[in-house]
Design a protein around this nucleic acid. Structure first.
Lengths: 191, 191, 191, 191
DNA sequence: TATGAATGAGGATTCATTCAT
DNA sequence: AATGAATGAATCCTCATTCAT
């Protein structure tokens, strides 16, 4: 008798194991074996549930995006003005879960791979477009025509701070990162 | 006597081919074959001159660092004040050669791999330390105690703009990038 | 659930194929491919079950030793006196299975490789020590202080006859070999 | 201007280097590179003088045979009777130069390879035939019809003692080996 | 004469994937 | 549902060999 309802459990397990393996071994050295071992399951299971390594990687990136959104959406709902909404975006990006090395390294890996994998590229473009359109939309009432430029700058700042954190640079902890991003925003809104 | 003095020529060729292959195929799909094919040489030659794929990758990262420095050093010499020196750093990082997708993607790939490869990690730490110490040194007379923070912010900004460019985001061309970085600096120095 | 219990079957198959390949191709030209082809299996299976070529070679040598012992032990049990025990050693070494060119050539190959491979060297030393200590122990009551010397001579004789057989010399068939070894023993015990 | 008369010098150098490399690295791990490095020359030189690795190996085995003969022939000339001639054979086989591990290991390697290489096989058969015909010829007047058997036994004894020495067994030094071989002869002639 | 350059076939090994159970 | 068995293509690397100089 087959156990029922295992699918969502196993899928979550395997996605978590993928993040874990990319963090531990790097993207280039992440194999079906390292993932399944990290999940405590057999290699065959990946094909059973995802149909291959590629689809699992794509599913993992999608899961990362969903998670980021699940941090962002409630914060956006609570925010009352344009500025608060932009700050909510910053907060979400530097929320504890998003700012773990595990997660950042995985984002970094997917960014590196995105130009060479159609599905990952598609997801990455969706993420980028969403982030900038959010920012631009809310920056418009605050900085007018400079909105696209400030949005680009803030997006770059956020990603750059992620990168600094992933690379283990000094002064790149969650607190400092948030402060630097807010400081950037403050100065843009001031002038 | 055989053809002599091929070593530096071949080494340069193979390093260029490595950058090319990482750009075209991604780091994870860059193999001894893709590199040697890009160089128009046989796979064996990589071991002849570098002793393996790993050393070639490290040599490529070193070459990238040397190139960046060769953009930076003369610009720093020409600069007369602290501010001019910081602007020289920005200029060098967004100079034409450094801002090619080929080069940026390669940097990105190495950053992703650095945490899992001792030699690449060493090189990456050297690069990060140099950049920030340059910035901090010259920011000190301009922003005083805020120097470390501004240095971290500017470094993140530079890397974030590289990343935006590598990921093909809009408004992330060389001109826009330079403008955003300079704008960041201006606002930090303004107060 | 997959096919279970294949491991011992496959291991025996691969060890037999190793002996076969060394016999057919020589040690230096025995590759993972020649072995797996002789076993009618794929090259990957060797790493699946043994973890590599080296461990398979060591396992093969161990299997040869086990086989030789399995000829020797019951014969020793049946033997009632010192002399009978020594004759049992001779019998075992020239038993049909041990005296096949396949097996002898494999021993010869391992002897040649033993000085350059720690694990094979270890096994070879175990074999040599066991043989001589058996012989010495049983020769002591028969030839007294000359036991070590006679043991060394008899061991050399046995190996030399193996070698002659492996090299296809005339008068080195199983019968002749046994007769020569027994003759050596007789003459040593006589005087 | 080409240096003249280098051929015999280089050939001797390369043959010595082959023996050295087989001793140090084993036959299976002896490559054109290990040989040329041991000779302090470039890899290309082997093809220049021998036309390849195979011919060099054959030349090395031939050189070993010539050396053994050069020990044997003068000793045979000095010998006055059948028994002295047989003892001369024993002496030659255990002469200092022939009983070096370097040399024995090389013989062992060639024996292992001989069944799979026509040229090495041919040489090995010549060696074996010569040794036994020498022994048989001189044993005839001493042991009559038993000559072939005693010749086979003595040949096996000699090779077995070589093997023992190569494998580093105790009581297998040059002195002990010679004593064991002579003892074998004595007892055969006695009865 | 002798070399280092260069090759490409073949080495061991790893990998994603398939499959019977 | 989930596994271990098994594969064969692809990986990095080594090798004997060729060649221009």
């Amino acid at each position: 008798m087959p156990k029922l309802g295992m699918e969502p459990i196993r899928k979550r397990q395997l996605i978590a194991a993928t993040v874990e393996s990319i963090h531990r071994n790097g993207f280039a050295d992440t194999t079906v074996q390292t993932i399944s071992r990290a999940a405590g399951l057999s290699p065959g299971i990946i094909h059973h549930y995802f149909g291959g390594k590629g689809p699992l990687l794509a599913a993992t990136m999608r899961a990362l995006m969903v998670e980021l959104r699940s941090c962002l959406v409630p914060a956006l709902r609570r925010a009352v003005g344009s500025r608060e909404r932009i700050e909510a975006v910053i907060e979400a990006n530097f929320a504890e879960r998003q700012f773990q090395p595990q997660v950042i390294v995985t984002w970094l890996a997917f960014w590196g791979q995105a130009p060479h994998d159609p599905e990952l590229g598609r997801l990455q473009r969706i993420y980028a477009r969403r982030l900038e359109s959010h920012l631009r939309y809310d920056l418009r009432p605050l900085v007018g025509a400079r909105a696209p430029m400030v949005a680009a700058g803030l997006a770059a700042m956020i990603d750059g701070l992620w990168l600094s954190h992933a690379l283990g640079r000094p002064d790149a902890g969650p607190g400092a990162a948030r402060a630097l991003a807010r400081d950037y925003l403050d100065r843009q809104l001031a002038g």
